[in-house]
């Protein structure tokens, strides 16, 4: 069983009887002491002899889950997010334990998670790429997401756009997506733009955001996104698909090249997936890589794809990265 810092605080407030056991090494207990938890046993050997509710605490809440499972402990709870999440909860009254599996990563940590929760991302296009990217960004804790699409759900969308189901056919994609995404993270703000991005509205759609994700299905909109991305200095995370292949690029970051520099002569009448066909997994893979690159940009993780184009081939799972 797990217990969140918020629930444990409730136990403390209600005066519930429990025994807290801090299994961390002594030096870590000294460096990162548990605040406001009352008496804590710091000896793992005493676990089996205690009968009331146990709360096991390690630094990130991962080791204790393993101990409970291996020792088959009854009435034992692993503090989700561990001492890190508990102390942050005491400090800021915000429960970060939900994201403990990613805040444990040294590149993310609590500071990175806070950046994600403040971030403002816009996804243009809520087809296969947009569905995948939006889901992953919501579950990662992105705080503000704007989704843009003027299309309705069609039967042929369902095999690659998992936010929609048969009962949604005919409804606006952004409205259905908002409902589903808010279920993934009720704390996030999801704004919808029930329209297609064009030369007249593109500036306002992208203005005020930190990153624009290009999840469109046509080159002419991509060129517009690139233009506004440059004008507004909002990095563009591009994704494109062709049968079993995908492209991902991060453009217009710190003066690096943009989509129109890479494809200066691209035409809007080149083949799209409606003409060539596509397996639903491919937009899932590419959309998730777009989400990953977005997270890396927000948190400041390198290496990333800034100024590069990654090409993925789903047939043999080969990749090639081109420097722009």
């Amino acid at each position: 069983m797990i217990i969140t810092p918020q629930k444990l605080q409730k136990w403390v407030n209600e005066g519930k009887s429990f025994t807290a056991i801090d299994i961390r090494p002594k030096e870590m207990r000294i460096e990162y002491p548990l605040s406001k938890l009352g008496p804590v046993i710091a000896d793992i050997k005493s676990i089996p002899s205690i009968n009331n509710d146990l709360v096991l605490i390690c630094q990130f809440g991962i080791v204790t889950e393993g101990i409970i499972y291996e020792k088959e402990l009854k009435n034992a709870h692993s503090l989700l997010g561990g001492a890190q999440a508990w102390n942050e909860f005491q400090l800021a009254k915000e429960d970060f334990s939900r994201w403990s599996r990613q805040t444990v990563l040294s590149e993310i940590g609590l500071e990175g998670q806070k950046k994600l929760m403040k971030a403002k991302i816009v996804i243009v296009g809520m087809g296969g790429l947009g569905c995948a990217a939006a889901q992953s960004l919501m579950t990662a804790g992105i705080g503000n997401l704007k989704i843009v699409d003027g299309d309705t759900v069609e039967l042929s969308n369902l095999h690659r756009q998992p936010l929609y189901s048969a009962e949604d056919i005919g409804r606006m994609k952004v409205e259905v997506a908002k409902e589903k995404l808010e279920r993934l993270n009720g704390d996030a703000i999801v704004k919808i733009e029930n329209l297609y991005l064009n030369k007249d509205n593109g500036y306002n759609i992208i203005n005020g955001t930190d990153i624009v994700i290009d999840a469109t299905d046509n080159i002419s909109t991509r060129i517009l996104i690139d233009r506004f991305s440059k004008e507004l200095s909002v990095p563009m995370v591009y994704g494109g698909l062709f049968q079993y292949e995908g492209q991902i690029g991060v453009f217009n970051v710190n003066g690096c090249k943009g989509y129109s520099d890479l494809f200066p002569f691209s035409q809007s009448d080149q083949v799209n997936c409606a003409k060539t066909g596509m397996l639903g997994m491919l937009p899932g893979i590419i959309g998730n890589i777009q989400a990953l690159e977005t997270i890396k940009l927000i948190v400041g993780i390198t290496p990333n794809l800034a100024g590069k184009l990654l090409m993925y081939d789903g047939m043999n799972h080969s990749t090639q990265t081109i420097m722009l």
Partner: peptide
């Protein structure tokens, strides 16, 4: 030498 076309899809 790599030849890279722009792709649509989404």
């Amino acid at each position: 030498v790599a030849f890279i076309p722009p792709v649509q899809g989404g």
